[in-house]
């Protein structure tokens, strides 16, 4: 009896590897989409450094009221008008410090809206003093 010699192809099946790989891609895509790791960055003043190393009159003071309205250097101003107000000041001094004082009863989003607008206007030197710091320098009133 003659035995048949069936040839076995010398191939590694790679079709399923691509399936597995694409499954993993989809997993990482979805995982990266849902992770919240982006936002606005700022620096708190160093421990040994005063929050107000600049003269208050040299800085722009923005006060955010509980109803989210703004007072900039003592004058009421709309959020949209803020870049226009700051632009000439930044042109003269690109490192112009801006002090932001938010009322304790204001929503957090009111503070982030102003902060975002400042960043959009190109302000890099934003100081966000806490109530304890303001009280330390005798500037605590009026932010309730």
């Amino acid at each position: 009896m003659k035995l048949g010699r069936r040839e076995v192809p010398a191939e590694i099946p790679t079709a399923s590897m691509a399936d597995v790989a694409f499954l993993l891609i989809i997993f990482f895509l979805v995982a990266s989409f849902y992770s919240v790791t982006r936002g606005v960055q700022f620096s708190l003043p160093r421990h040994d450094e005063s929050a107000f190393t600049v003269e208050p009159e040299a800085a722009v003071l923005i006060e955010v009221a509980p109803d989210s309205s703004l007072t900039v250097d003592g004058r009421p101003l709309a959020l949209k008008e803020l870049p226009g107000y700051l632009r000439p000041k930044l042109a003269r001094n690109p490192g112009k410090p801006v002090i932001m004082r938010t009322a304790l009863d204001a929503p957090y989003s009111a503070m982030t809206d102003v902060f975002d607008e400042l960043r959009q206007a190109g302000v890099r030197n934003v100081v966000i003093p806490t109530q304890a710091e303001l009280a330390l320098y005798g500037l605590g009133g009026g932010a309730q």
């Binding site: 919240v36 982006r38 936002g39 700022f42 708190l44 003043p45 160093r46 421990h47 806490t130 710091e133």
Partner: peptide
């Protein structure tokens, strides 16, 4: 923020959408 300042932290990110 006050707790962070007292602890000496400096680099803060406010996460947003």
């Amino acid at each position: 923020l006050e707790q962070l300042r007292q602890a000496g932290a400096e680099r803060i990110t406010l996460l947003s959408r």
